[in-house]
């Protein structure tokens, strides 16, 4: 049996909003670490990996590992019935046909109970090799979102160039070209607004902007995003939460 109580339903709502345009039918894999998800998009260009750590739930009770096969459009409909500040409890049996979602307001005078039908989803899990990235850039997630939205107006793809001087996002399309360069800077008063670049060697890679714009839907989860790059491996875009993360991996464009 699973019983997992989350202080704020808004956390799960934001996670689902962040990934539901990329992946549709997913398994929530529940084990001792927490509730995890790994799924590729239909075209197998991007992969999303999510973990809500068991420490983030109180209580988190699980008798045996279970996979909850969920259609995210359906889950979104049920989660719309919760207020962001509601306490959310997820409950499921050991071989579940349904997932129970219970929403309680903070005053504890309203309890809503929903049952979501589960699906059998046969999903392959990919092993993600441990990677020492050549460059790791942390920056405000809103800034990254703005850059992606701006550049997609000119082109389908963006070249990300990380060097000691900074990180340059550049694109070129039918109407012209554009670039945004961010220099490393440390905002002492507001650390979340800092741009930090950890670099072992310069990297230049090109990615599809359509996917990056999609990843940016996770900006509500964290004010900071980390981009990790190495030549010839997928880009890692990570949004860290208090007790968990949403990570997106994007295969680079090749032969450009």
């Amino acid at each position: 049996m699973l019983e997992a109580r989350l202080e704020q339903a808004g956390v799960l709502k934001k996670v689902v909003d962040a990934i539901r345009d990329l992946v549709q039918d997913i398994n929530f894999d529940c084990n001792d670490s927490g509730i995890a998800l790994q799924a590729m998009d239909n075209s197998h260009v991007a992969l999303v990996s999510m973990l809500l750590k068991s420490e983030g739930f109180s209580p988190y009770r699980l008798d045996r590992n279970i996979a909850l096969g969920i259609n995210l459009t359906s889950l979104t409909k049920v989660l719309r019935c919760a207020q962001n500040e509601d306490i959310l409890t997820l409950k499921a049996e050991d071989t579940p046909d349904t997932l129970s979602l219970i929403f309680e307001n903070a005053e504890n005078d309203r309890i809503s109970e929903y049952e979501l039908k589960l699906m059998d989803i046969d999903q392959e899990h990919l092993g993600i090799p441990e990677t020492e990235y050549a460059a790791a850039i942390s920056m405000p997630s809103a800034e990254f979102q703005r850059i992606c939205r701006d550049l997609i107006q000119l082109s389908d793809s963006v070249t990300i160039e990380a060097s000691k001087e900074g990180v340059k996002f550049s694109c070129s399309g039918d109407i012209g070209s554009g670039s945004v360069t961010l220099r490393q800077q440390n905002n002492v008063d507001k650390p979340d607004l800092s741009t930090k670049i950890e670099l072992t060697e310069p990297v230049t890679l090109t990615f599809s902007l359509k996917y990056l714009v999609n990843f940016c839907k996770a900006s509500a989860l964290s004010s900071v995003v980390t981009l990790s790059l190495s030549n010839e491996v997928p880009l890692l875009v990570e949004y860290a939460m208090g007790s968990g993360f949403v990570r997106f991996y994007l295969a680079p464009k090749i032969g450009e």
Partner: peptide, 14 residues
């Protein structure tokens, strides 16, 4: 999707 790599070719099947 010309020139677009696939994620399967980087990560291994479990």
């Amino acid at each position: 999707n010309p020139g677009q790599g696939s994620i399967n070719s980087y990560f291994f099947k479990k």
